[in-house]
């Protein structure tokens, strides 16, 4: 029982971790928690659905198409709206992304209504693999693996590629980065594209488990955001760990205490953690200087 709960907790946790990573990547460069992240992923997932279902393309074409769409959407939103904010403070940035959320949600529900659809996925949610006394579905296994591979890729990207290092530099000190010849605006575009793509990946992995409708990402986004906050909005590793922790704790709570209040416990824990570590578990807390 425990192992089973742990395992499915990790599977869900990897989805949260992906969303948390997507948010943190943006937060570190743009200093904005992107509330539009969920709907960006939802819309991209619908694009995959459309390519697959309406136009009859193969799964991988649709999947790639959706990822490209996600990247373009991210670049578009950052370039057209966020960059125009005159005097950006944290509140107005949050509000702009909340605005994205509403716009994208509106577009998706206008186009696809509230009908629930199935995203046909080549990996089954019903066939199970035995791991010791516990079982895991192929889909969950795939989710786990995709998340792990992505994290490794991200790590390598930030460690070894020129763009990755430039991004890290921009995150730490935009002014110094600019002086050193890094095109900060271009880095921002790349950041949003990357983040949006990762989010879309999470959306498409989630869609077969949940049902595909415009509300698909509402709760996962909040959980992903909560994970990022739990781990600390400024650390990629922390955010990923936060995702896994949240998935596991939530599932254990659901299994042993109360399934009904499963989704509240997440926020309860976060509020508690924040009381003691105001910048999350794995991030340093900075105090403003006078």
């Amino acid at each position: 029982m425990f192992l089973q709960l742990l395992l499915s907790g990790i599977a869900f946790g990897s989805l949260y971790a992906l969303i948390a990573l997507a948010m943190v990547i943006i937060y570190k460069t743009s200093e904005v928690p992107n509330f539009g992240q969920g709907e960006m992923a939802m819309l991209s997932t619908f694009v995959a659905f459309m390519l697959l279902d309406t136009y009859g393309h193969s799964f991988f074409v649709s999947f790639l198409g959706a990822l490209v769409f996600a990247a373009l959407l991210g670049v578009f939103l950052e370039f057209v709206f966020l960059r125009r904010a005159k005097d950006p403070n944290i509140l107005s940035l949050i509000l702009i992304t909340l605005g994205f959320e509403m716009i994208l949600y509106g577009v998706a529900s206008w186009k696809w209504g509230a009908d629930q659809r199935d995203l046909s996925f080549p990996v089954s949610d019903f066939d199970l693999v035995n791991i010791g006394p516990a079982v895991i579905s192929y889909l969950n296994l795939a989710t786990l693996l995709v998340a792990l591979v992505l994290m490794v890729l991200l790590f390598l990207f930030f460690r070894y590629t020129k763009v990755g290092i430039a991004m890290k530099a921009t995150q730490q000190n935009p002014m110094a980065a600019r002086i050193n010849g890094i095109r900060v605006n271009r880095i921002l575009s790349v950041t949003w594209a990357m983040s949006s793509t990762i989010g879309a990946m999470a959306g498409m992995l989630l869609a077969p488990v949940a049902t595909l409708d415009p509300n698909l990402m509402l709760e996962p986004l909040l959980k992903g955001f909560a994970s990022a906050v739990l781990g600390g909005m400024t650390t990629l590793v922390g955010a990923a760990l936060g995702g896994y922790m949240l998935g596991i704790i939530e599932n254990l709570f659901g299994g042993y205490v109360s399934l009904e209040f499963k989704s509240i416990v997440a926020f309860g824990i976060i509020v508690l953690v924040l009381c003691f570590r105001p910048s999350g578990l794995f991030a340093k807390h900075y105090v403003r200087k006078v």
Partner: peptide, 27 residues
């Protein structure tokens, strides 16, 4: 192009646009 049933959701789009544009142009 869209669905008629989903038409009321246009209010969500307009609200979102209002928020975004106001924050940018008239804080």
């Amino acid at each position: 192009f869209m669905t008629v049933a989903g038409l009321p959701n246009i209010s969500s789009i307009i609200f979102g646009l209002i928020i975004v544009l106001l924050v940018i142009f008239e804080p």
